[in-house]
Design a protein around this nucleic acid. Structure first.
Lengths: 229, 229
DNA sequence: AAGTGGTCTAGACCACCTC
DNA sequence: AGGTGGTCTAGACCACTTG
């Protein structure tokens, strides 16, 4: 007999794994499952919702619950503060401010932030080091319209990354991952060979409809992103 | 007055955004929040759990609820069946089997699968095309110990990717993302210039403790992974 | 129009962890 | 040992969507 909602979830998972239900199949209604497993409907609901969150099952009011016909692998990517990421790997963290200047928006940034919201900008380049070796280089744009107090931050003491994450919670965040070959300055700072392949993470964060920052993080060659499933 | 748990969640989110609470701060206990917002404790619980799932808040029995001291950006990566991904982008899908053969495990695969579980293996290389242009090349290992019936699959009709995802649900999945420069065969099939940077996704899926498959997917240069927040 | 999942409530008990 | 979050229950009502 099932006790908690996790047991109910595992019971259903097992049925999926041993093909009691196949992609596209319909499950009994929550009430009947509850009856069968001798628990409350809300317990079945809790289990089913966790399966729906994981992308395994699809639920529709009046329609019922179905095993997803075309399963989607869903995995969670955690991106900590760079300092924490480096320290978690057991290295000593340091960061190094390369440049900081007020500039006009490039067309790419204007498009991303919204043409009317890219008036006062700060561009910052910084290098994060692990045990004094280059780890990641970031090229960041900050909207001073959204974060005016940023001009007072001492970037030799705290990285823009850490200050923003800790002082400016965001309501929305876009992440894009791509691969590029290293060129020019980035290669010099990262001490990487020209033409090496690097993983690039771009993030834009927003508070309501106002852009906070856009950062392009170029990692040293060989960097791997790992998701915990 | 708050109505549903989403309103409670948004109420707390707003308090975080306007710095009513700062990283590390402790929230009142659920019961008190419920009293203040005039709703049931379980409603507050539902809201707090969604914030905890999002990595915004940390909850400890007896300890209470805290705003995370070092916020972590958490984002969800969805990886559909390659055919669906291509069709969703509005292209016509085709796939092309390059090779399929029974082979011995390379040391890398043996390590990944577990030395004792890499005895009967199939290695498959296939190319997925969008509007007849190369989209992604996959190099896949399949454990015939775990999936013996795979030998009967007609890989000219259905891709290994789609057959496995639809017929072999997994209980665990690891994903790794990295950047590489294209070399040799992959470049030929992807019609990409030697030395171009490509995004590589590696996935291993398991059922319980048995490996199902390991796939290395090499994308055409310029490919971007986007997360939906 | 009716059936299904989604949510809210109030109360109870449990489990875990800090104090 | 006590306080906090975690869960279960039973019942009620709501919201959406489909037949």
């Amino acid at each position: 007999m099932s006790r908690g909602w996790k047991d109910v979830r595992d019971h259903i998972k097992r049925q999926i794994l041993n093909s009691t239900y196949k992609p596209g199949d319909k499950f009994p209604r929550d009430k009947d499952i509850a009856l069968e497993l001798n628990c409350a409907r809300s317990t079945v609901h809790r289990a089913m919702r966790s399966l729906a969150d994981a992308g395994i099952v699809e639920r529709r009011r009046k329609g019922g619950t179905f095993l997803k016909p075309e399963p989607v692998t869903r995995t969670t990517l955690s991106i900590p503060i760079t300092r924490v990421e480096i320290e978690d790997r057991g290295y000593e963290y340091r960061h190094f401010l390369v440049s900081a200047k007020a500039t006009k928006a490039t067309p790419a940034i204007a498009t991303r932030f919204g043409a009317d919201k890219a008036s006062r900008l700060l561009q910052i380049q910084a290098l994060h080091l692990a045990d004094n070796r280059p780890y990641v280089m970031e090229d960041r744009w900050i909207s001073l319209d959204t974060v005016p107090e940023f001009v007072d931050v001492d970037l030799t003491q705290i990285s823009a990354n850490e200050w923003l994450v800790c002082n400016r919670p965001y309501s929305r965040c876009d992440v894009q991952i791509s691969a590029h070959t290293i060129t020019g300055e980035a290669g010099k700072f990262l001490e990487a060979a020209e033409g090496a392949a690097t993983l690039v993470l771009e993030r834009t964060t927003w508070i309501d409809d106002n852009p906070i920052t856009h950062v392009t993080a170029t990692h040293t060659p060989g960097y791997r992103l790992v998701t915990k499933g």
